[in-house]
Design a protein around this nucleic acid. Structure first.
Lengths: 196, 196, 196, 196
DNA sequence: CATGAATGAGGGTTCATTCAT
DNA sequence: CATGAATGAACCCTCATTCAT
């Protein structure tokens, strides 16, 4: 429909602008201009700047949660699961770098998003990650002498750190590089960085 | 001197407020109130909000760079170096949780800080980290089949992820917990998460 | 006709909303919603918010003027005429409390309505009231040692004050109470409040 | 002090503008311009348009309540008390016509002011008026066969109606005219409008 | 050094009105 | 007739910064 199309145009424009300027420095006028629509139309679809931002973030959480739950329920080989997860993030960066950048710079750490509600979303992701690590431990793939949340910190931290560098450098990811990154991260995570 | 004392009072107050509200939502008036000084005095010492924030961040970068350079030049056992680095961050959180929180939420990822100048500071830290990892590889402690920057992502990412959880949860760290965290992170980083 | 019906639906809805929120705080969207019609249809029938409001007020003035002219020409006993006038206002409140409330709160005093044109409508009512008082004086029912406009102030003021209290308190008027109010007001107006 | 003077300048300017345009059509910029101060200074003293308006209205209620309580406690002749009350309103119009106009057009009836809190202020005045009427009845000056509140409606209504005409016509009141108005209103109120 | 009054540009939001379908 | 998407001027309020005392 025309309606959904316009919404999409506005959301896409806001993804660009939020990414470029950050939430605090984004003007609703910037979004309207970028979208090529009038000032008021943005408000016709989104009742406030925050609502617009939330719409973006919610859609992000949904796909993350879905992805994690899917992998949580998966019967695949555990290493394959880890690989899926990393590639999910890298592929998302590929197809929607603005969304990924916003997640990294405005959501994952930014105090702006850390209202109680925002925090719970973040924690929820963490819990889902932890479940997967717990599965790895139950399957005897992962060590059990390390508390599950440390495994989570390290795996999630590696992904975020890699994404941060890519995002902040505005780098382009080839399929090849994505695979190498996933392989390297998983290799260190599972086998360690120490010389054998 | 009285001068330095007042400056310190203002900086301490701003650490609190920046931590609580984030840079964008902090008012100069908030800082003045928290410091118990007049509105204009803040401007007497810091010519703008940004200058005040930068003063804080610069002091942070200085200690981080110093610490990394010290460890870079250190003759210690490599594992000991890694341990020093982790404990540096955890100890800083202990003694100055506001500074650590600001680093995590306002600097390390936030787009607010990602002016070209801010980015270069961040990259500089990354380079120093990378040098240490490179040393580990030269010393044959770390694998050389993994690109140095991946080792960096994983190690730095783990620290940041752990700190994030602690900071966002406003948690208290005992000496014991700090040691356990360091040990766990290093153990996984070096030996891997896989069951042996 | 369908046309007139829709107009009436819109007018009735606007009476409700204008009464509840006042002219300034009424949105055209509120009226459309209350009427259960689309946004644009209100504009189809009324070219602006002011035109809609005026349509209401004009209809009010018309019945007031008609009523006053009728009583002005009436051969009835003067006391009966005063009674008719009071009961006209009270009956109107009964049948159309929203209209009465709008008159009291938005028209009779509100500066919103006091454009030159609005004022002239108001003055016109005052003149008609004054004519009736003048008739009372000519008929030797009312004292002539009091300037006609003072008689008008007192009589009209009493009606407005009573209506104000009823309107602001959103009170229900029984036939009995209406009669008592009319009798009391007229008794004091004609015979005075002093103990005899 | 400079501070109080500036406040007064702003309040005086806002009295003018509120009177001319009404609350809803008054721009904060208008007030600042009229006061000859910067835009922000208005907010320095009054945190919102509503707070500024309330400051005005509160000061009004205070003098009204004080005046009514004084007359309530007065040992004077009852007719003298009625005269005092009327002259209070007329004198206030004389010295501060803008305040009086705002009371008449924006407060006494306007729905804008009829929040629950606004209403209670209005009712409070009504109650104080009613007490005075009740005293008149107890003193056997006023008839007791008429419910007290009807006496109140008629007396208060007469004052308001007179003031309304004066305010809307932007008329000038001489001392002489004030006295005649008071005498006429009281004469009709006490002795009635009927020819004897 | 210290105070806090004063400034005014900037930005989010509202909402009457228009217009394409 | 009817719809509701689209427009954009208007306005309240914020707050970093300046400045007189």
């Amino acid at each position: 429909m025309a309606k959904d199309e316009k919404q999409k145009i506005i959301i896409d424009a806001s993804l660009e602008v939020f990414r470029e300027k950050g939430f605090a420095n984004t003007r609703m006028a910037d979004i309207a201009n970028r979208a090529g629509v009038s000032y008021g139309l943005v408000y016709h679809y989104f009742s406030s700047k925050e609502v617009l931002f939330d719409a973006i973030v919610e859609s992000w959480w949904k796909v993350v949660y879905d992805m994690l739950e899917l992998n949580s329920a998966s019967e695949s080989d555990f290493e394959k699961i880890l690989n899926n997860i990393i590639l999910f993030f890298l592929d998302t960066y590929d197809t929607n770098p603005n969304l990924m950048a916003i997640f990294i710079t405005e959501v994952s750490r930014s105090s702006v998003y850390h209202t109680p509600r925002g925090l719970s979303k973040f924690r929820n992701m963490f819990v889902l990650f932890e479940e997967i690590m717990s599965i790895g431990q139950k399957k005897k793939v992962l060590r059990s002498d390390i508390a599950t949340h440390y495994l989570t910190y390290i795996f999630l931290g590696a992904i975020e750190a890699f994404l941060s560098v890519v995002v902040l450098g505005n780098e382009k990811l080839t399929q090849d590089r994505k695979n190498r990154a996933a392989t390297s991260i998983i290799s260190v995570f599972l086998n360690g960085a120490k010389c054998s």
